[in-house]
Amino acid sequence: MTGTTGQSIENGSGGPAPVSASGSDVQGVPLYRLRGLTFRAGGRAIVHPIDLDVPPRQVLALVGPNGSGKSTLLKMMARQLRPSGGAVELLGRPVTTMSDREFARQVAYMPQFTPPAEGMTVRELVGLGRFPWHGALGRFGPDDAAKVEAALVQTDLTEMAGRMVDSLSGGERQRAWLAMMVAQDARCLLLDEPTSALDIAHQVEMLKLVRKLAGGSGVGVVIVIHDINMAARFSDRIVALRRGEVAARGAPADILDAAVLKRIYGLEMGILPTAGLPVSYVP
């Protein structure tokens, strides 16, 4: 089954076969395996055929200029958008064969704009993360309650668990949403610009938390992020898109390179070497 799907993509994608993901940094079965994933709207390709593997226990950052298709790619992975072509496999199974709840037990997704969730306490919001497990009618059991508490602890929200979500600051609210995703107990977290509305301190706090989750419970994380330096600091691997195509992929250190950045952003950028990773800047 898997084989034939792969076969058809090889044939279907046409043109030169897309560069295969470097298998070297993937251990065992990848969480996600994308083959020839395409998205078209109004006759225009937003995402050209893309191949990508997402390993567990890693943070993969999707970067690129506005309109490069990174959010679209993430939405297709989250089954929020139906791809125009290609295949998405999750843990070796085509996602199209999974039911909504089945999928939600494996993948948690945070949209770019999170509504204020009026009239809900933090604990209730986090509790909603258990929906894929108990469904509309199942019992919210002690196991669910324990997962919720654990998620609150992990995200350091226990003290404000009784507060209303809409009374929280931007950073706290993003954390509460992240906690909900943690309670969802998924194997993979997909985050669409979770830091875009946050100040620098909260960005760092948020990304540290994401990092910790990937390290601790072994989930894979795919994060769409604007700031290339932040991406480099907190991710294991970076995939850079430009005009719907992969412009570069590799370890952070490989991406923070003047030539590569020029390829991604079409802009002359400088690199400052530092003690750790280098830092890019616009001269």
């Binding site: 909504d100 939600a104 997704y109 949209p111 509504p115 909603l128 929906f131």
Partner: peptide, 12 residues
């Protein structure tokens, strides 16, 4: 109230 994207990602 979480919005359609989040609701969908929770398996609804």
């Amino acid at each position: 109230p979480l919005g359609p994207a989040a609701a969908r990602s929770l398996g609804l």
